[in-house]
Amino acid sequence: MAHRTRERPRGPVAWAVLGVSVVTVAALLLLPLVVVFVEAFREGPARWVSAVSSPDTVSALKLTGLVLALVVPFHLVFGVAAAWLLTRYDFPGKGIVLTLVDLPFAVSPVVSGLLFVLLFGARGFFGPWLIDHGIRIVYAVPGIVLATLFVTLPFVTRELVPLLDAQGREEEEAAASLGAGAMHILFRVTLPRIKWGVLYGGVLCAARAAGEFGAVSVVSGQLRGETVTLPLHVEVRYDEYAFVDAFAVATLLAFSGLATLGFKAWLEERARRAMRTTGESG
């Protein structure tokens, strides 16, 4: 049966449901976004510029950039490897691997952060040893990176598993029958076909890595200029009653969030077009 076409809403019930939906989304989801920009520019653009260019903001921006630079490439590689493993091989304990990959989604961000404090905190399992050797993980940059790695773990894999599943093995088997090695197949056959999925998973991962607040706030210790990421900086300034500064920094994060949404919409439009053209030729 052909895909249903959307109709104009008809009848009072339909209009009422649509009205409730629009009001809900506008009041609950859109207003908070609008208020971020209104509050940020409350005292004019010059104030906004000085807020986002203050030394603290710049150092938070740098730290967030560093976290991104470490976390995203790591997960791109890991995500492709894990998805490949999960879809191309059968092995005992596959269910466990899937659960472990999914787990960070199910755990509260605060608990995610806690896990690393329990491991590396002063009274944690490796705490005493780390102190003896003068290594700081928790309340320092390594802790922030670890906690971010944890919470962003599922994104790329989750994106790729259904793609690789849907794609099937035929082309890879064809390549193998022609004598191609595993690496050759991965780079010449598989990756080119899932590149958009990899990109999308990477963008989702980056968005979450840049915006993670709960887990990072547990392991950060909030040393100004040292362990404060952008989302944490928002909190710091807010708690200091520097509301305009807090919202100005928030606009930076909101921009990157909106860019992510835009990218998602663009990718979906692309996919829809691709489907339409293949649908017509078929």
Binding site: A207, F213, A254, G257
Partner: peptide
Amino acid sequence: IPFALPTSV
């Protein structure tokens, strides 16, 4: 939007 905005924002 709630997926895209950091929770502190």
